[in-house]
Design a protein around this nucleic acid. Structure first.
Lengths: 99, 99
DNA sequence: ACTATACATTGATGATTGTCAATATGATGT
DNA sequence: ACATCATATTGACAATCATCAATGTATAGT
């Protein structure tokens, strides 16, 4: 995953409401109305945020009847997490990774 | 670390230039002019980005003579990484974490 | 004192963002 | 057909952002 993609994911996570949505989805799929009940925003605002989360690939949605089932996209999240884990601070002080 | 703090860090990482700065600092402390040489932005813009990275606690700076030595703040980065790692997708499919 | 270097600040500009009210779409049940 | 529920879209607004040119402020070397 390249730097631009990572920055897009970080932008999607840069809003507390969207972070809360991610946390709620941690417990499994949820529809929009369930998310809405647990948050302090209006329905259009939620729709806006879901679009942002889908746009960077973190969340997928499947329409089932009236409802949209949102879920965390495990692969995308793992790729993001791997990138974050790959950042190691001040290697210089630990033996060095660069010449 | 609470959700608001995490979102501030993500906002700081939501710009490709700032992500590049973080990567450059991975190899150890660097001064502003070194960073500037490796990037495609002007000096005021770099100064602006460094302020953003310091503002969320990801980067620390120490003035030594003419130079500012920037370094990744290991503790803050670790706390952020721990939060990201704590997010696990769709526990429902793995035994469930919620009732 | 003078010059050069490293960095910060200011001011301006165009772009993006988060939010909501209003409205539209689309599916379900009666 | 009609009413209801879930969600999307539009339009508007204030706020924030990324960027740069110009300028200011130190510090170091001569």
């Amino acid at each position: 995953m390249d730097t631009n993609q990572i920055s897009l994911i970080c932008k999607a996570l840069s809003d507390p409401n969207r972070l809360q949505i991610i946390q709620l989805l941690t417990c499994g799929d949820q529809c929009g109305c369930d998310l809405l009940e647990r948050m302090q925003i209006t329905q259009p605002t939620l729709s806006h945020h879901m679009k942002a989360l889908e746009g960077c690939g973190l969340v997928s949605s499947v329409k089932k009847g009236k409802w949209n089932h949102y879920s965390l996209n495990r692969d995308q999240w793992t790729a993001f997490r791997d990138y974050i884990e790959s950042i190691r601070a001040a290697c210089k002080e630990e033996g060095g990774c660069c010449s």
